[in-house]
């Protein structure tokens, strides 16, 4: 499994945010994207996921097999928003994404245990704090199997213990042959990760 980006360019509202960005990630490799606000980290992740059209270049996966032929089908995307409904319980939210996304991995209860939300699954998401909602959203990565994790500020709102637990989850994913692309300001605690430094107006 390889994730390859060649000469990627991205634009927002007609303005070029970045251009000529390329990387190639083998399995078990991580890429940490850093840079100041407005450097285009989120745009890069959305272009890689295929949620924004690339202004130039292309992204592809190799060796994904039948289950993961395209980048979109091989990727989890964790954006700034949690993609969970406040009116539904945590279990209902996760259960929905597990059924909808296919390739089921951990059960909802196991995933909640992994993010230390065990016993809170019956509560509506609206009753949880910001950090707990983020952890519930992270549990979404665990209920369906995807080799590529695209993470945009994944640890925003998390406390120290949760950050470490999340680093452990990412290491586990990498050990299982996964690929992580994360945009962040904070160190994520993954050893040996590649780094991509973005600058404003590159």
């Amino acid at each position: 499994m390889r994730l390859i980006a060649e000469n990627l360019g991205g634009e927002r509202g007609g303005e070029t945010v970045f251009s000529n960005i390329g990387f190639a990630l083998e399995k078990s490799e991580a890429l940490i994207v850093t840079g100041p606000n407005g450097a285009g980290k989120s745009t890069l992740l959305r272009v890689v996921a295929g949620l924004l059209p690339a202004a130039g270049g292309k992204v592809l996966v190799e060796g994904g097999g039948e289950a993961f032929p395209t980048v979109a089908s091989a990727s989890h995307y964790l954006g700034h928003l949690n993609a969970m409904k406040t009116a539904l319980s945590v279990e209902e939210n996760l259960g929905f994404w597990r059924a909808f996304q296919g390739e089921p991995a951990l059960s909802v209860e196991e995933a909640l245990e992994k993010v230390a939300l065990g016993g809170l699954g019956h509560l509506p998401l609206g009753y949880l704090s910001t950090g707990q909602r983020r952890r519930a959203s992270i549990a979404k990565l665990l209920v369906s199997r995807r080799p590529v994790w695209l993470l945009d500020e994944p640890t925003a709102g998390l406390d120290k213990a949760s950050e470490e637990r999340f680093a452990g989850l990412m290491r586990g994913h990498l050990q299982d042959g996964g690929i992580v692309v994360a945009a962040t300001h904070l160190p994520l605690g993954i050893e040996g990760a590649k780094a991509l430094q973005m600058a404003v107006g590159l």
């Binding site: 949620l51 979109a72 089908s73 990727s75 700034h80 928003l81 969970m84 909808f100 996304q101």
Partner: peptide, 16 residues
């Protein structure tokens, strides 16, 4: 769209 679910619905358009 407001809670980000729409991104994931579009992202899964290869499966559904």
């Amino acid at each position: 769209r407001e809670d980000g679910s729409l991104d994931l619905l579009v992202l899964n358009s290869d499966r559904h």
